[in-house]
């Protein structure tokens, strides 16, 4: 039984290969980028705007507000990363309504890659915001011997992020695949709808967790005001 879409390989040359995961990721990227480009091509700064621009602005301002609500006041700095994370995951999961579609998020490689991104983003944004010294100091707060626990928590949460998303998406796809063999009519549709819901929720959870990690680290790294 095939668990990951990584196993379907279109092209391979030594170490380099083109599998379904990468291909579908490119497709998603193309959809997102071309869609954004098409809509933002004729942006109006007037009070009257087009419907598409309105939808786009709602999405962007929604993400921005969400980031601010979690605690990152300067949301403009984080929106590119966190917003792209959410949109990529959301659309990746949304397209499961199409038959024969394999979401890239059902590949542990993708979720691991995204988790690694978050793993890197947390120190990156913290160091950029508060400096390297303040960031490193946060590992020995409140006492020195907390350092190994901090390091462990960094790795474990990255792993948790990766596995949580992968598990949810892979299981969804698997459940539908199994159900199709048992009851080919009606029930898989219901499961598909359910999969849409869980997919959207997972996209939201992944993004919001990433935001929370960055915000929490930023809060810890911030020099204490005495």
């Amino acid at each position: 039984m095939r668990i990951s879409p990584d196993d379907i390989v279109f092209f391979q040359h030594g170490f380099v290969k083109l599998n379904v995961t990468i291909a579908i990721t490119w497709l998603l990227m193309a959809i997102l980028v071309v869609g954004s480009k098409l809509i933002t091509r004729k942006l109006s700064t007037d009070i009257k705007i087009s419907r598409w621009q309105c939808i786009l602005e709602m999405i962007v301002t929604g993400i921005k507000n969400q980031i601010e609500e979690v605690g990152l006041a300067k949301s403009g700095k984080y929106i590119s990363f966190l917003g792209s994370l959410f949109l990529f995951l959301f659309f990746s999961n949304l397209l499961t309504i199409f038959p024969f579609y394999e979401p890239p998020t059902s590949s542990l490689s993708t979720t691991a890659a995204l988790a690694i991104c978050v793993f890197v983003a947390v120190p990156f944004y913290n160091i950029r915001e508060h400096g390297l010294v303040n960031y490193l100091k946060s590992y020995i707060k409140p006492v020195f011997f907390m350092l190994p626990f901090h390091i462990m928590s960094e790795f474990s949460r990255t792993l948790a992020l990766a596995v949580r998303l992968f598990g949810n998406m892979m299981s969804g796809v698997m459940v539908i695949a199994i159900l199709l063999t048992i009851t080919p009519f009606v029930f898989p549709v219901v499961m598909s709808v359910f999969g849409l819901l869980t997919g959207s929720v997972q996209a939201y959870i992944f993004s919001i967790l990433a935001t929370v990690f960055i915000a929490a680290a930023a809060h810890e790294s911030a020099p204490s005001k005495k």
Binding site: D6, I22, K37, S80, F88, A113, L114
Partner: peptide, 29 residues
């Protein structure tokens, strides 16, 4: 379960996506 080339490729893909969306979506909007 983990194909490290795919991981690297997805990492790059995601970073490219972040850059593209920043350029074509967030910044103009």
């Amino acid at each position: 379960l983990i194909d490290w080339f795919t991981v690297a490729a997805q990492l790059v893909n995601f970073l490219v996506l972040v850059w593209l969306l920043k350029r074509f979506l967030y910044k103009p909007v």
